[in-house]
């Protein structure tokens, strides 16, 4: 009898356990392949988009860490990446040489947002022309404009996530404010007479203007290579520019020169040998550092740059 009961109840128990399993199962959200895909031209713009979008967007960067945006040539793989995008982000102000990101977005029929919209660009002289300096992200105050532009673009793309994007953008803007205050405190440790920043290419104009480096050069960058490493007007290296840099170094009595992660260091190393000045270290300029490095985020790259500059010039 007991055995018969056992045989009869087994399937019932099995069904019961199965049904309980279905009811008790937590709501499992399948891996969402419908998330908006954001494709950014540079690593720092991709970082801003990730900070704001969190896990509600997929962010891809065309440039790898250490790549030079001025001379970059898009590959067939980049075309594939852009074809899968819902939104493209570029720096603008001709950072992307020959507007390669705008071309990729236009050819792929994708919406494009220029992250520097609304920034008052620094105007540089080059061969008698005025050129807008594209390296605006190198001060947190301008990075805040990037963040606001990207947050607005994400909200337009996914309006249901407005509060999520707004809250994350606000938190990130607070972090940028703290970063800015910290940079001011760190730079104040360097005596004003030693605040001379010589780098490989003219990427640090906004930084010098904001934090009062290079007073004898109108608080602008001192570098042997112009605002771009490409062939644009006012870009590249000329004998005249090289001579002026060496003159500035000798007059200012700077303690160190800096190379950059995205630019060939040959010019600065030659100048260092010629002037007898040491290389203070390698700065992040047009790109963040690789994953796992201290400069793998925007805040990280700025922190490492400032620590290196302060350490070398003190």
């Amino acid at each position: 009898m007991v055995q018969m009961l056992s045989i009869a109840t087994k399937p019932i128990l099995a069904v019961f356990i199965l049904l309980l399993g279905i009811i008790g199962r937590p709501a499992i959200v399948p891996a969402n392949t419908e998330l908006p895909v954001i494709v950014a031209s540079t690593t720092q713009i991709a970082d801003f988009a990730r900070q704001i979008g969190g896990d509600q967007v997929v962010v891809r960067s065309i440039l790898a860490p250490g790549a030079d945006p001025h001379t970059y040539l898009p590959t067939p793989n980049d075309v594939e990446i852009v074809l899968g995008a819902d939104l493209c982000l570029e720096n603008g102000l001709h950072l992307e040489g020959k507007s390669w990101m705008a071309t990729l977005a236009r050819d792929g029929g994708k919406p494009l947002v220029t992250a520097t919209d609304g920034i008052q660009p620094l105007l540089l002289e080059g061969s008698g022309e005025k050129i807008s300096d594209p390296h605006a992200w190198l001060v947190p105050r301008n990075a805040a404009v990037y963040v606001n532009n990207i947050a607005d673009a994400l909200i337009r793309l996914a309006p249901d996530n407005r509060e999520f994007f707004d809250a994350r953008a606000e938190l990130y803007l607070h972090q940028l404010r703290v970063l800015d205050a910290w940079i001011r405190q760190q730079v104040s440790l360097i005596p004003p007479s030693r605040r001379v920043l010589v780098t490989t290419h003219d990427a640090f104009n906004y930084f010098c203007r904001e934090y009062r480096f290079n007073p004898k050069n109108d608080f602008l960058s001192i570098a042997p290579v112009g605002w771009s490493t490409g062939g644009e007007v006012g870009a590249g290296i000329t004998p005249e520019r090289r001579r002026r840099v060496i003159e500035s170094i000798r007059q200012s009595g700077t303690r160190a020169l800096f190379v950059e992660t995205t630019v060939n260091p040959k010019q600065v190393r030659e100048i260092a040998r010629e002037t007898g000045i040491v290389i203070g270290g390698e700065l992040y300029s047009d790109s963040m550092g690789p994953s796992g490095s201290a400069g793998e985020t925007y805040i990280g790259m700025m922190r490492e740059n400032v620590l290196m500059i302060v350490n070398a010039l003190l």
Partner: peptide, 8 residues
């Protein structure tokens, strides 16, 4: 405030 969240 340059670090404020601003939009249209």
């Amino acid at each position: 405030d340059p670090f404020a969240r601003r939009s249209d």
